[in-house]
C-alpha cells in the first residue's frame, strides 16, 4: 500500500464519510488529528465538509467557514463572559455550549486574586480542553503558564464574522487587508478563531474603517482586497 494514501486528498474538498487514511499501514508513526476528523478503528474518517489540510510532519485537519464554532484544543478565541460562579466564569465562544474559564487559570492565579470580570466583558483566551458532551475549558495562560496577551480586552470594538475570515486574518504571510491598512493606520487587532474580531485604535473613525474593511474582505480575492483597501484609504485621506 502507498505509504501516504492521504496525499491524494490533501488541499482538496472532502465531505463527511470520506476515508482519508488507513492507520493499520502506518503502525510505527504517530499522527495528530485536528477538527473535523475522527478515528474509526483502523481508518481516519472525515466528519465535516471542508478542505483537508496537512502540516509536516503529522498534523491533519479540516478547514471550513462557519458562523458557529466547534471548539478544538489549542484554538485562541474571543469570548464574552455570560455568568460568574465561585470557581469559574461561563464564557460564550459561539460554540454549542458555553465554555468554562476557571478562576485560577490566570498567570499567578490564586484564590486571593480572582479577576473581577463583569457580565459582557470580552476575553481573549485559549481552549485547553474540548471533548464532545462536555463544556470546553478555557485558559488565559499559554502552555508555559505565562499571561502572553491573554485576558481582558478593554475598549475598542468587537464584531462577528465567520471562522473562515478569522483564519484568513491570522494566516501568514499577513493578508492584504491588514497589510494595506497597517501601512497607513495605527490600530490594535485581536482575532479569535471562533469568528470574532476585536479592533482598537485612537480614533473611532479608524476603528470603523478597519472593521468595515475586514468585514467586506470576506468574499474577495487577495488582489481585490488590496484594491478595496487602497480605495478606502484614498477616500479617507
Amino acid at each position: 500500500m502507498d505509504p501516504k494514501p492521504s496525499m491524494t486528498f490533501i488541499d482538496k474538498p472532502v465531505i463527511p464519510g470520506d476515508v482519508i487514511l488507513d492507520v493499520s499501514a502506518m503502525m510505527d508513526q504517530t499522527i495528530k488529528l485536528g477538527g473535523g476528523l475522527q478515528q474509526d478503528h483502523d481508518t481516519i474518517t472525515v466528519i465535516k465538509a471542508g478542505i483537508l489540510r496537512f502540516s509536516e510532519p503529522n498534523k491533519y485537519w479540516i478547514e471550513s467557514s462557519h458562523k458557529r464554532f466547534i471548539p478544538t484544543v489549542g484554538d485562541t478565541v474571543l469570548g464574552i463572559v455570560v455568568d460568574k460562579r465561585a470557581d469559574s466564569f461561563f464564557v460564550d465562544i459561539k460554540g454549542p455550549m458555553v465554555a468554562f474559564l476557571p478562576v485560577l487559570a490566570f498567570e499567578g492565579g490564586t484564590r486571593r486574586n480572582i479577576p473581577k470580570y463583569e457580565v459582557g466583558a470580552l476575553i481573549y483566551a485559549r481552549i485547553v480542553n474540548a471533548n464532545t458532551g462536555m463544556n470546553p475549558e478555557l485558559s488565559c495562560m499559554d502552555a508555559s503558564g505565562k499571561a502572553a496577551e491573554f485576558g481582558l480586552l478593554k475598549d475598542g470594538y468587537m464584531f462577528e464574522s465567520s471562522t473562515g475570515l478569522s483564519r484568513m486574518l491570522l494566516s501568514s504571510p499577513t493578508c492584504p487587508v491588514l497589510e494595506g491598512l497597517g501601512k497607513k493606520l495605527a490600530f490594535e487587532i485581536a482575532v479569535g478563531l471562533n469568528g470574532r474580531v476585536w479592533v482598537n485604535a485612537e480614533h473611532p473613525s479608524s476603528i470603523i474603517l478597519v472593521a468595515n474593511a475586514i468585514m467586506n474582505s470576506e468574499s474577495l480575492t487577495p488582489v481585490q482586497q488590496k484594491i478595496m483597501v487602497e480605495r478606502l484609504l484614498d477616500r479617507v485621506n
Binding site: 464574552i80 461561563f90 458555553v98 475598549d155 475598542g156 470594538y157 473611532p204 473613525s205 476603528i207 468595515n212
Partner: peptide, 26 residues
C-alpha cells in the same frame, strides 16, 4: 445560554462614543 446572541460591554460603549462624533459602526 449558549444559544442567545449577546453583546459585549465594549460594543455598547463604542457605539455610544462613536455616535457622539456623529459616526455609526457601519
Amino acid at each position: 445560554l449558549g444559544n442567545t446572541w449577546r453583546m459585549t460591554v465594549n460594543e455598547k460603549k463604542f457605539i455610544e462614543s462613536a455616535l457622539e462624533s456623529e459616526l455609526r459602526v457601519d
